[in-house]
Simulated assay, not measured.
Amino acid sequence: MQLAQTKQCANCPWKVDRNLSKISGYNRENHEALKETIANPNHDVFEQLTSPKIAMGCHYSTDEKLLECVGWIYHQLRNNNLLLRLVLMRSNQIKDIEIDGAQRATFSETLTD
C-alpha cells in the first residue's frame, strides 16, 4: 500500500490545537461513526485481524481521491493496530509520516474542542 499523503493537515482532528469548526463540511455524526476504525488493543490478534474496520480518511478526501488521515495512522501505529501494521509493512513511507504538534491521545478526545 502506498499512502496518498504523509504529512498531517493543519486542522486534523487528532491535533490538540485544531478547531473542528474550521474543517470544511465538518459533520459530527460522520466523525462519531469513525470510532469503528479504532483498533482495540484489548482484543486478541485474531479478533483485530478479522474485524471489519476501515481506515479513517482525511477530511480533504474527495469522491475521486481518498486521502488517508495521517493523524489516525500515527495514533493507530502507536496503539498497536495490527491490521494497519500488516498493510503498511511493505511501505517505505512509514519513515516519512510527519505529524504537526501535540496529538490527542484517544478518539473521544478528537470529538472535543
Rank of each mutant, 00 (worst) to 15 (best):
R18M: 11
Q48P: 01
G71R: 02
E68V: 06
N42K: 12
Q93P: 07
M1T: 14
C58S: 07
N27W: 01
T62H: 02
R85E: 12
V45Y: 11
V87C: 10
L67T: 01
H43Q: 12
L66P: 01
S108T: 15
D44L: 05
L20Q: 08
N81I: 04
Q93G: 02
K35A: 13
L82Q: 07
S51I: 12
W14D: 09
P13I: 15
G57M: 02
N11K: 00
Y60K: 09
Q93A: 00
A10E: 15
Y26C: 00
R104N: 09
Q5E: 12
S108Q: 10
N42A: 15
C12I: 01
N80D: 15
L82E: 10
P41N: 10
D96F: 14
N92K: 11
D96L: 12
W72P: 06
Q76Y: 00
P41S: 11
P41T: 08
D113V: 14
N11L: 02
I97K: 04
I38E: 06
A105R: 14
E98S: 05
Q2I: 15
D113F: 07
A33N: 13
N79Y: 05
C69S: 02
E98R: 01
N19M: 01
F107D: 05
Q48R: 09
D44T: 03
I97T: 05
D100R: 02
A105M: 11
K65I: 07
L86F: 12
E36D: 08
L88A: 08
Q2A: 10
E36M: 11
D113I: 12
A39C: 15
N42M: 14
T50Q: 15
L86T: 06
D100E: 09
N19T: 01
N81S: 05
G71Y: 12
N80H: 12
E29A: 13
D96Y: 13
